[in-house]
Design a protein around this nucleic acid. Structure first.
Length: 794
DNA sequence: AGCTGTGGCAGGGAGG
DNA sequence: CCTCCCTGCCAC
């Protein structure tokens, strides 16, 4: 094994390293030099190193000044340049960089350029890849990474939060229009301070902050929504006072440019702040990234997140946004306490969620700030590219196309069923990739499988070390190793996705399909093996299976043994793990079900049962209804229905019960354009955003309800902001919400005979409801599973 | 100076 | 009414 990741991590991270050489930051000094910051005995020192800006090109001929006869002089690998400097080429004599620069200079006059497109004689469909900024290129070429040998606690972080003199009467004020009155700060060593403008005024306040940052000289600046709010706000106020916003190392100014980050289907635009020599971490992004897999938070605001994680102290000060101005005049001590609580919570949040990004930084040729904001595919790609650079091997073109298959999903039984066993194939896709030698066709050096294998083994080592440290009672180190193993896991799981990534240099859709189709065969094999042992299969989704074990298997040990037996007949390298047991489940639809644990806790899964955009009353109704199904309380279900029906008719629900919260995927401008072009239909959310005059940006969420009278059909022009609803004059559309209740009732339709269903979900008072004779449909065959043939070559 | 994948359900608009 | 298509959200 000699791949870089193994070298870097195995020798220097897992087994320790001389910390004197730890790089904690870097910035571009000139066309050719990088200033590197090292931490030595707690003191930050710097030195300058040569770097070499370059592009990767699919063909040397794309380089202006390239002469075919000189082809031998080039490593076709790498043709250089950046957006701002002339193109450079790397010669066979890799280290003779000055000669390379001179060579190109002879071919072409030196002048700054706006983009490589202008400089290089290639069409827009030509293939030139710019691998990141100067620091990234330096790290790529040198094989170094930041933070190597450090643990998270070695990092010096500060937290920052600002409060402005916001006047609620003047809502038109934009970003940077109100004065900054408070700046609260804290650091990772426990120091805290709150600066304010009461005596000194805003200009002095800003100067104090900048000089304090210089003195503290932090590696990392953290804040909640710091990119979209605190930093641009500070910058704007500094501009107004003519104070240089010099918060970078050596008094450097930050560079800012528009950037975006994606969380699943949502894209958020924000101004990126590149602070020379430091790293900016926005805890808002950390939280959103965390919530993608957990899906448990209702709000990403600092206060609610702090409550969610349980580090909001009981005596925490809370202040309403609209009261800040008044408090500043009357009770500014309270405001200072509030601001301090904000940074404390930010610190706790960053400490909790930064571990995996910190350890990823030690493995990747990206800065910490960059690692935190790029996607999974970019992380995988740079690992492979670094290996190619090291071997001075040319980089392939990406292929265009599309992956065509995915996971196998099927529901065999619907209804109320139990007892339940849940089993799943451990790390299905990574295991397939390892066992079936998956490798992109263009990856001639076969770095992909090598990296995957290294990551797997390193994760194993890190897990082992974490356990060992835990046993020794060294909890802090155990946690660090745990964060490390989780960052390996992130990379491992991203490797499959990279194969099907449209823009990946090493993408391979055929290999991606091979992974998924193998996964499908394995899922089918798993089904037949459990079935042949008397299990009733309920649902299979990609790598997991829910089934009712045969009657003779009743204890947890017996269930585990059964899973082990099936696991042992699976192909080499594919293991099935026992992942839980449940008293009962309600199988509703594919990817939609309820599980009842043995301690009586019900968990709902699936968008039709849990969607956060849905009305709260609907979710409550379905949840409570499913609980009655599990206890077979049919009268209870009827009572539940009448309870909600009455609440709607009598306007007894609060706006929080019937409003919906949806996020806007596009900007309002984009929406209007698309509607005009006939590319999309009108949508209630965007229409409300326009009508209300609120400036709602891409990725933000809007909470609204349906108003108007008469027809039950909602339409795009009937929405109102939830904040406009008045308890004294409720104007929600009763007809509409009764229809919504009816739609939620439909979720119970499959569990009853039609006439019984009508009886339960009717509030006809002529005859009192009686559950007599109504039978719950407990087990319904869903699909004709005539033959799950297993002729696949497993 | 952006971007892992497919499968699946709910709900709404537009047009027949 | 129905179907088609799009968006949003979720499981894995």
């Amino acid at each position: 094994m000699d791949s870089f990741i193994n070298d870097v991590v195995n020798n220097e991270l897992l087994f320790g390293k001389d910390k004197e050489e730890c790089i904690v930051g870097a910035y571009q000094l000139s066309d050719t030099h990088i200033r590197v910051f090292n931490r030595k005995d707690g003191v930050v020192e710097s030195h300058d190193e040569l770097f070499y800006p370059f592009f990767f090109a699919s063909d040397a001929a794309l380089l202006d000044g390239f002469v075919p006869e000189e082809k031998e002089k080039f490593w076709l690998v790498t043709l250089g340049g950046s957006n701002y400097y002339q193109c450079l080429a790397i010669f066979r004599n890799w280290r003779n960089q000055r000669a390379a620069i001179d060579h190109i200079n002879k071919k072409r006059p030196v002048e700054p350029i706006e983009s490589a497109q202008k400089y290089l004689p290639y069409e827009s469909n030509s293939l030139i890849y710019n691998k990141g900024d100067a620091v990234t290129q330096y790290l790529l070429q040198s094989g170094k990474t930041l933070f190597k040998g450090m643990i998270f606690d070695d990092l010096y972080r500060i937290q920052l939060d600002i409060e402005t003199d916001f006047d609620p009467k003047n809502k038109k004020n934009g970003l940077g229009d109100d004065e900054i009155i408070i700046i609260s700060l804290s650091d990772s060593r426990g120091w805290e301070s709150v600066l304010h403008a009461k005596k000194q005024g805003e200009k002095k306040l800003l100067e104090e902050l900048i000089s304090l940052v210089a003195t503290m000289n932090p590696d990392v600046i953290e804040g909640h929504n710091i990119f979209s709010f605190d930093l641009p706000y500070l910058q704007r106020r500094c501009e107004k006072h003519g104070v240089p916003f010099a918060i970078g190392r050596n008094g450097m100014l930050p560079k800012t440019y528009p950037a975006s980050i994606r969380f699943a289907e949502r894209t958020i635009d924000y101004p990126y702040f590149d602070i020379p020599g430091r790293h900016v971490i926005d805890t808002l992004f950390l939280v959103q990234s965390y919530d993608i897999s957990k899906r448990s938070m209702q709000s990403y605001g600092l206060k609610s997140v702090a409550k969610h994680f349980g580090f909001a102290t009981p005596d925490r000060t809370y202040v309403d946004y609209n009261d800040i101005s008044t408090l500043w005049e009357n009770n500014h001590e309270k405001l200072l306490a509030y601001a301090l609580d904000d940074v404390r919570e930010t610190r706790a949040l960053a400490s909790l969620l930064s571990g995996s990004n910190f350890y990823l930084t030690q493995m990747l040729p990206y800065t910490y700030a960059m690692t935190a904001r790029i996607g999974q595919a970019a992380k995988i790609e740079v690992l492979i590219v670094r290996e190619y650079l090291r071997h001075k091997q040319s980089i392939p073109k990406p292929t265009s196309g599309k992956q065509s298959s995915g996971g196998y999903t099927e529901v065999f039984l619907k209804g109320v069923l139990g007892p339940i066993v849940y089993a799943d194939v451990e790390s299905l896709y990574p295991s397939i990739m390892l066992s079936y030698n998956i490798c992109p066709k263009s990856d001639e050096l076969r770095v992909f499988p090598e990296v995957l294998n290294d990551l797997k083994e390193l994760r194993f080592k890190a897990k082992k070390r974490s356990q060992e440290e835990k046993n020794k009672g060294n909890i802090s180190l155990a946690n660090n190793f745990d964060a490390m193993q989780s960052s390996f896991k992130i990379l491992i799981n991203a490797m499959y996705g990279y194969l099907g990534y449209n823009m990946g240099i090493f993408n391979d859709f055929i290999e991606a399909d091979k992974v998924t189709s193998t996964g499908q065969s394995l899922a089918r094999k798993m089904i037949t093996e459990f079935e042949s042992r008397g299990c009733k299969i309920i649902e299979v989704d990609t790598d997991g299976i829910l089934f009712v074990p045969p009657p003779e298997i009743s204890s947890e040990e017996e269930e585990k043994k059964l899973v082990d037996t099936v696991s042992s007949v699976m192909p080499q390298g594919i293991n099935i793990g026992y992942d839980g047991r449940f008293k009962k489940m309600i199988s509703y639809m594919k990817k939609n079900y309820a599980l009842l644990s043995y301690d009586g806790v019900m968990t709902l899964k699936g968008s039709s049962l849990t969607s956060r955009s849905g009305e709260k009353f609907g979710k409550e109704f379905v949840r409570r209804g499913f609980e009655t199904l599990l206890t077979e309380d049919i009268a209870g279900l009827h009572n539940l229905f009448t309870e909600y029906k009455n609440k709607i008719v009598n306007h007894e629900l609060d706006v929080t019960d019937f409003s919906r919260t949806e996020s806007l995927k596009n900007s309002v401008e984009q929406y209007l354009e698309d509607v005009k072009a006939g590319k999309r239909s009108k949508a209630i959310t965007y229409e409300i955003a326009i009508k209300s005059g609120l400036h709602i940006t891409k990725g933000e969420r809007i909470t609204y309800y349906v108003t108007g009278s008469g027809g039950a059909t909602s339409s795009w022009d009937r929405g109102k902001l939830a904040s406009e609803w008045k308890k004294e004059r409720p104007d929600e559309n009763t007809q509409f919400y009764l229809k919504r209740l009816d739609e939620h009732c439909q979720k119970f339709l499959p569990f009853f005979k039609p006439q019984d269903y009508s009886a339960i979900f009717s509030s006809d008072t002529l005859f009192s409801f009686s559950p007599e004779g109504i039978e719950l449909q407990k087990e319904m065959r869903h699909t004709e599973t005539t033959s799950i043939n297993e002729e696949s070559s497993l």
